[in-house]
Design a protein around this nucleic acid. Sequence first.
DNA 1: GGGAGTGTATGGTTTTCATCGAACACTCGG
DNA 2: CCGAGTGTTCGATGAAAACCATACACTCCC
Lengths: 111, 111
Amino acid sequence: MAERTSHRAAPGHTHPDEVPVPAALAALADPVRIQLVRELAGSAEWTRSCGSFDVPVGKAALSHHFAVLRGAGLVEQRDEGSRRVNRLRRPEFDARFPGLLDLVLREEPPR
Amino acid sequence: MAERTSHRAAPGHTHPDEVPVPAALAALADPVRIQLVRELAGSAEWTRSCGSFDVPVGKAALSHHFAVLRGAGLVEQRDEGSRRVNRLRRPEFDARFPGLLDLVLREEPPR
DNA sequence: GGGAGTGTATGGTTTTCATCGAACACTCGG
DNA sequence: CCGAGTGTTCGATGAAAACCATACACTCCC
């Protein structure tokens, strides 16, 4: 089989430094992913498992969104027992895209 | 001051204040539109007509891209004779989305 | 060991978006 | 008035993205 030695394969993480600008913008241009990032920003690191987010999509789509966030250097994941816990890569992402995350996390004026 | 003197319908401009975050990000997540914004930022206001940009798409697609940029509050247009000249709404857009435009206009390190 | 819980992969559907060619509208200069 | 230049609109096409249901893989705990 594959090289699934002991731990679940660590999903391909991408460092923000390797993310092109359009990819970062595209990753954050989706309402579901914005919601994920916002909730993540409001929780302590490594405390939220993938299934603990209140988004209106099924598991498969959710998994896909996390893959996009990983690929954009926005989220880091680690296996913890049977769950996969998340961390927002705030400092790294801010270093590469200053102000972008702040923009998304900012309270949206009611209009 | 109210409206443009010209006959051609003034295209629906949207002020950046009315643009939701995802729409702004989506507008800037396209390479062609990034190129348009960059060239626009490097030219004096009201000096560039729509056809004067060096992008690898036909007229129809180009017109579409400008419509998106208008809808995102990024570009303002005015009819000048037979041509339609453009202006990057930098101060307004910066006020609404601080740092976003800077991010896109920033030189991209080769890696 | 066998479930229950959790997340990923696969396959297929639907929607969205970028693009083009062609037709149309407007302006300007002969 | 006609033709060249400029930009928008329309219809169609192809590609990308979001989504779901199902099936699979892994971990924990009884």
